[in-house]
Amino acid sequence: MNAVLALSAVLFAIGTLGVLVRRNAIIMFLCIELQLNAVNLALVAFSRAHGIDGQIFVFFVMTVAAAEAAVGLAIIIAIFRHYETVDVGSFNLLKW
Protein backbone atom coordinates (compact mmCIF):
# COMPACT_ATOMS: atom_id res chain seq x y z
CA MET A 1 0.00 0.00 0.00
CA ASN A 2 1.37 3.30 -1.11
CA ALA A 3 1.30 5.93 1.58
CA VAL A 4 0.49 8.67 -0.88
CA LEU A 5 -2.54 6.82 -2.17
CA ALA A 6 -3.74 6.32 1.38
CA LEU A 7 -3.38 10.04 2.05
CA SER A 8 -5.28 10.74 -1.16
CA ALA A 9 -8.14 8.46 -0.10
CA VAL A 10 -8.34 10.11 3.31
CA LEU A 11 -8.36 13.62 1.83
CA PHE A 12 -11.05 12.62 -0.61
CA ALA A 13 -13.20 11.26 2.19
CA ILE A 14 -12.76 14.45 4.20
CA GLY A 15 -13.71 16.51 1.15
CA THR A 16 -16.81 14.43 0.64
CA LEU A 17 -17.77 14.83 4.27
CA GLY A 18 -17.39 18.58 3.93
CA VAL A 19 -19.64 18.74 0.90
CA LEU A 20 -22.26 16.78 2.75
CA VAL A 21 -22.30 18.48 6.12
CA ARG A 22 -21.81 22.15 5.33
CA ARG A 23 -24.57 24.49 4.25
CA ASN A 24 -22.40 27.38 3.13
CA ALA A 25 -22.10 27.18 -0.64
CA ILE A 26 -18.57 28.59 -0.63
CA ILE A 27 -17.33 26.05 1.89
CA MET A 28 -18.98 23.28 -0.16
CA PHE A 29 -17.10 24.61 -3.08
CA LEU A 30 -13.82 24.57 -1.17
CA CYS A 31 -14.47 20.97 -0.20
CA ILE A 32 -14.99 20.06 -3.83
CA GLU A 33 -11.61 21.62 -4.57
CA LEU A 34 -10.24 19.48 -1.80
CA GLN A 35 -11.62 16.39 -3.48
CA LEU A 36 -10.04 17.44 -6.74
CA ASN A 37 -6.71 17.82 -4.96
CA ALA A 38 -7.01 14.37 -3.52
CA VAL A 39 -7.50 13.04 -7.02
CA ASN A 40 -4.52 15.07 -8.23
CA LEU A 41 -2.42 13.54 -5.55
CA ALA A 42 -3.42 10.04 -6.57
CA LEU A 43 -2.70 10.83 -10.20
CA VAL A 44 0.78 12.09 -9.38
CA ALA A 45 1.42 8.94 -7.40
CA PHE A 46 0.27 6.79 -10.27
CA SER A 47 2.42 8.73 -12.69
CA ARG A 48 5.48 7.45 -10.87
CA ALA A 49 4.62 3.95 -11.99
CA HIS A 50 2.89 4.59 -15.29
CA GLY A 51 4.71 7.51 -16.82
CA ILE A 52 4.17 11.23 -17.24
CA ASP A 53 0.54 11.03 -18.44
CA GLY A 54 -0.78 11.23 -14.90
CA GLN A 55 0.87 14.58 -14.41
CA ILE A 56 -0.56 15.87 -17.66
CA PHE A 57 -3.98 14.96 -16.34
CA VAL A 58 -3.30 16.86 -13.16
CA PHE A 59 -2.52 19.84 -15.30
CA PHE A 60 -5.87 19.57 -17.03
CA VAL A 61 -7.70 19.02 -13.76
CA MET A 62 -6.24 22.23 -12.45
CA THR A 63 -7.37 24.12 -15.52
CA VAL A 64 -10.86 22.74 -15.21
CA ALA A 65 -10.84 23.58 -11.52
CA ALA A 66 -9.93 27.17 -12.34
CA ALA A 67 -12.74 27.43 -14.88
CA GLU A 68 -15.12 25.82 -12.46
CA ALA A 69 -14.15 28.20 -9.71
CA ALA A 70 -14.72 31.20 -11.94
CA VAL A 71 -18.15 30.11 -13.10
CA GLY A 72 -19.19 28.64 -9.75
CA LEU A 73 -18.28 31.76 -7.81
CA ALA A 74 -20.10 33.87 -10.38
CA ILE A 75 -23.18 31.75 -9.81
CA ILE A 76 -22.79 32.12 -6.07
CA ILE A 77 -22.59 35.89 -6.46
CA ALA A 78 -25.69 35.90 -8.61
CA ILE A 79 -27.54 33.77 -6.07
CA PHE A 80 -26.39 35.97 -3.22
CA ARG A 81 -27.68 39.06 -4.98
CA HIS A 82 -31.06 37.44 -5.29
CA TYR A 83 -31.45 35.71 -1.91
CA GLU A 84 -29.02 37.70 0.27
CA THR A 85 -27.58 34.38 1.47
CA VAL A 86 -25.27 31.60 0.37
CA ASP A 87 -26.99 28.98 2.52
CA VAL A 88 -27.94 26.22 0.13
CA GLY A 89 -30.70 25.10 2.49
CA SER A 90 -32.63 28.28 1.88
CA PHE A 91 -33.37 27.74 -1.79
CA ASN A 92 -34.57 24.78 -3.76
CA LEU A 93 -34.32 25.86 -7.39
CA LEU A 94 -32.72 22.68 -8.67
CA LYS A 95 -35.86 20.96 -9.81
CA TRP A 96 -37.98 20.77 -12.94
Partner: peptide, 17 residues
Protein backbone atom coordinates in the same frame (compact mmCIF):
# COMPACT_ATOMS: atom_id res chain seq x y z
CA UNK B 1 -40.72 10.41 -9.92
CA UNK B 2 -40.53 14.16 -9.69
CA UNK B 3 -41.41 13.97 -6.00
CA UNK B 4 -37.83 12.81 -5.44
CA UNK B 5 -36.65 16.14 -6.79
CA UNK B 6 -36.55 18.30 -3.70
CA UNK B 7 -34.41 20.99 -5.21
CA UNK B 8 -32.04 20.93 -2.24
CA UNK B 9 -28.36 20.88 -3.10
CA UNK B 10 -27.46 18.91 0.01
CA UNK B 11 -29.90 16.13 -0.70
CA UNK B 12 -28.67 15.89 -4.29
CA UNK B 13 -25.05 15.79 -3.15
CA UNK B 14 -25.90 13.12 -0.62
CA UNK B 15 -27.75 10.94 -3.10
CA UNK B 16 -24.91 11.31 -5.56
CA UNK B 17 -22.27 10.36 -3.00
Amino acid sequence: GSLVQTGSVNVYAFVLT
